Simulated scan of single mutants.
Amino acid sequence: MRAAVYYGPEDVRVESVPDPELASPTDAIVRVTHTAVCGSDPWFYRGESDREEGSRVGHEPMGIVEEVGDDVRSVDPGDRVFAPFTISCGYCEFCRKGLHTSCVNGDSWGGENGGGQGEYVRCPHADGTLVRVPDRHADDEDTLEALMPLTDVMGTGHHAAVSAGVEAGSTCAVVGDGAVGLCGVLAARRLGAERIVAIGHHEDRLDIAERFGATDLVTARGDEAIERVNEMTHGGVNHVLECVGAASAMETATGVCRPGGTVGYVGVPHGMEGGLDVFDFFGDNISLRGGVAPVRAYAEELMADVLQGTLDPSPVFTKTVDLEGVPEGYRAMHEREAVKVLVKP
């Protein structure tokens, strides 16, 4: 089969690799029909995070089940499924409490199971990982593209909103205009936020934020952004979604959070070599909640809204490539020419 493989900074190639095979009775083989390039992928692409050369890449697969192990009960060959960015068993202590990213039997998509950006993947713990799409929606392309962000960015934006305590009537701020931040806006609107301030630097992305429900747009940076948000909200907001991970984004998040408020953080931390200054949290009794999003815990809830037509995060895909175009997809993400790249093998 063909799959994307990482060989070093700015060097992702699509090449022939062995097809994955069932290795356990709990496995499933999935033929990938849709996948994506994630906003976290450019970190290793730029050489700013470690990744083994020669490893397969991608972690957002959707496709058709081709084969299942003897112990798999929730899916059958021919079923349309999608999978979160981490593999989880579904039955351990942490999966049972909805913290699938801490699964004691968990795994990633980057090993010999095929990688998410390829023609096939092997899914260990198929019953705990794969989400089956109802047959009546299994071939509707618009629906499938709306479901694709549930593999990562929509669930992650939702986790930020939930962690920040967003509820009906809330005023909140979203720091970051990448795919996760945009989905955070959509999640905040879904949870009933009355006012949503989107903070970002790219007009085209903030246009999507406005389409998703942002009521106020702030393009300033640093102290100027903090000043602007605090001025327009008369002292800041009680709920902040931090969707970037950079130290500067966390500083903005704490700067616009009212005393006693909550920052829900889901941005992959980077640029924090000096550590996180917790004094602002301490001094204003600001709570910090979040972390890597257990998107499997939210999958059915969000899918129900997509299928009834009340949730559509697909506009975060601003570029589409085929499998051979994955290297171009990485370049476009690296150059910020795309919010998120959809891949149709």
Rank of each mutant, 00 (worst) to 15 (best):
E194R: 13
P149I: 03
V175N: 07
A209M: 08
A146Y: 13
P259F: 01
L191Q: 05
D216L: 12
H158G: 05
V240Q: 07
H270P: 11
H270C: 13
M154K: 03
E203I: 03
V218A: 14
G260K: 12
L147C: 07
N230L: 07
G255K: 03
G275C: 00
E167T: 14
R258W: 06
A246K: 00
E273H: 04
V180N: 12
G169I: 03
D277Q: 10
G245K: 09
L147H: 08
A247P: 00
H234M: 09
H270L: 11
V244H: 02
S163C: 06
V237M: 05
G255Q: 00
P149Y: 06
E167D: 13
E227Y: 04
V240D: 07
G192P: 10
T262A: 12
I196T: 08
G178I: 08
V175Q: 15
V197T: 00
E273R: 05
G192V: 05
G267Y: 01
V185Q: 10
L150I: 10
A209T: 09
V266S: 13
H239L: 03
V175L: 12
L150R: 08
C183K: 05
V268I: 14
E251Y: 01
A164G: 09
D216Q: 14
E145G: 01
A173M: 15
G178K: 01
M148K: 10
D223E: 15
G271C: 07
R205C: 10
P269K: 09
V166R: 03
E194F: 06
L217C: 15
A249W: 04
G176W: 04
A253D: 07
L144D: 10
L150S: 02
T219C: 00
A188G: 10
A164F: 06
I226W: 01
A160P: 08
L191S: 01
N238L: 12
D204Q: 00
A225K: 12
V244T: 12
L182M: 03
D207T: 05
L217A: 15
G235V: 12
G192C: 05
G245F: 08
L191P: 01
L144H: 14
G192M: 06
G181C: 05
R258E: 06
D204T: 10
R189G: 11
G264H: 07
C183I: 04
A188W: 01
